[in-house]
């Protein structure tokens, strides 16, 4: 029984917003099953009472002085946009049609 099925991969790809062909799903499911088999070795370590580490530097709430500095500006921000219109990013429709 594989750790991860083709159906699982299709669901994950949808969550990650990546279209995949049937062939890609098949290949990915096989590869991920092998990789998951290898990385699941972390489960061999007895670590129930061990706190997790999310970050190497124990810093919290790092703040800088609230000094106003020039921002990027609309023209520079829009210069790399795939599409822009009237000083704004132009994007595909977000809502379904009525």
């Amino acid at each position: 029984m594989p750790a991860i099925s083709r159906t699982d991969v299709a669901h994950l790809a949808r969550l990650a917003r990546i279209s995949m062909t049937d062939a890609e799903l098949d290949a990915m499911a096989g590869q991920l099953d092998v990789i998951l088999g290898a990385v699941s070795r972390v489960g061999e370590v007895a670590a129930n009472d061990i706190p997790p580490t999310s970050h190497a530097v124990p810093l919290t709430n790092v703040l800088r002085p609230d000094d106003p500095v020039p921002s990027l500006g609309a023209a520079a921000a829009l210069a790399a946009a795939p599409a822009a219109e009237d000083g704004r990013f132009r994007v595909p429709r977000i809502l379904d049609e009525e």
Binding site: L12, R14, M28
Partner: peptide
């Protein structure tokens, strides 16, 4: 979804899916 399919290569897709899982 179409853009990310076209713009990312196989290893990046593998790792995004693995991380999402």
């Amino acid at each position: 979804a179409i853009t990310r399919a076209a713009g990312f290569g196989p290893e990046v897709k593998r790792r995004i899916i693995l991380g999402t899982y």
